[in-house]
Design a protein around this nucleic acid. Sequence first.
RNA 1: GCGAUUGUAGCUCAGUUGGUUAGAGCACUGGUUUGUGGUACCAGAUGUCGGGGGUUCGAGUCCCCUCAAUCGCCCCA
Length: 416
Amino acid sequence: MAGLQPVKGTYDLLPKDRAIHRKVSETARLTAERFGFNEITTPIFEFSEVFSRTLGETSDVVTKEMFSFETKGNDKITLRPEGTAGIARAFISNALQHETPVKHFYYGPMFRYERPQKGRQRQFHQVGLELIGVDTPQADIEVIAAGYQFLSELGFADVVTLELNSLGDTESRDAYRSTLVDYLKGHYDNLSEDSKTRLETNPLRILDSKDKGDKEIVKDAPLLGDCLNETSQAFYDAVKHGLDLLGIPYTENPRLVRGLDYYCHTAFEFTTETLGAQGTVLAGGRYDGLIKMMGGPQTAGVGWAAGVERLALMLGEDCVELPRPIVMIPVSADQQDEALKLSHRLRQQGFIIDQGFSGNMKKRLNRANKANACAAILVGEDELARGCVTVRNLESGEQSEVSLDALGETLAQFNA
RNA sequence: GCGAUUGUAGCUCAGUUGGUUAGAGCACUGGUUUGUGGUACCAGAUGUCGGGGGUUCGAGUCCCCUCAAUCGCCCCA
């Protein structure tokens, strides 16, 4: 135990923070539903092979970022670093190939053992969606459109750029990889140390290296687009055509690649300048080989995931307001019971009633302000004798006596 | 995993070339007002100076280690 700090890279979501996260996840869910995606929840841990086999043995996620442990039964378990592998596993486990196309939305925590930064934690949250069982570009278009719609709903249409590329099918990508490696070997001595390693593990990654020397070399490197075979090119063109039809703006980025092995054809990222080094806010692509790789039937898939923390940062503190209560204030201890019963009844009717636990009226009104209450119900001896209470509007300061029978009606103007 | 910066009250920060009992504002508690808030005034409480070790007569201040955060690299949402 390192004192009373949360574990490195984790943090608490206090009610205000949680409300912002909820706005992000609910906007995502409602948008997804409009596209016919329904929510699924898979476990936050899986057998380690679910990730290690599918994400690529040499990917950073697998080699250094997995939170893994062993159970008492000697099962090797990993806290999920991303959502797609678990959903593919669920697809197979539940034999959903008989129900394609499958359209899933998800929200939940993910875990990566990384050095924390702003917009990057060890436990973080993603929303995402997966469209499984459709191998035509229409699926890619729908998935990207849903992502764009989601970001637009949050008000980010103008601060976000959609970058698009095609990784092609296996044939195209293999052809390109060898062309690229040949080219890079010609400049081997000038490559950065990182890129020399990547030449072995994931040469495509060198394309978006931030090293200056690498950038110079990469500038004249052969492009993936030039190696696309006819099928892959037609697929890519169809996706672009669809986006054009929908008026979704995009920028082609021939150097956009993916970190995870299972991607093919469409790769896309929505990026922003507003978050520093963590500029990617929503990203995804097509993964036609994934489900088969995991031992299921050959099934196409395309999807994306978005970082909730990053979107929450972009939204800022003032985008949500916590629910505003009506405070119940017994004027003296003698009205305690009456106030308690009244609170109970009003809550059953759907009102948000905040009943304090101590203090005189001044104190209670003070707390009401801090709780951003919209009204106060003052339960006093005099009114009660007349079958009434006093309702005070805490914004205008106006107050009036209301009979208990008409109370619900009067309060309806505040909340229900 | 690598590099740089930072770490004093709940929050934002002062703290003089190392020198007695470590300060301010906001927030908090109580009061002026025993049935009426947001304002004002008065009073009060608050710190393992991130943690550990060292140098020194003396360390918030200097040195080492460690933890965490921030920024960048790597990678990614």
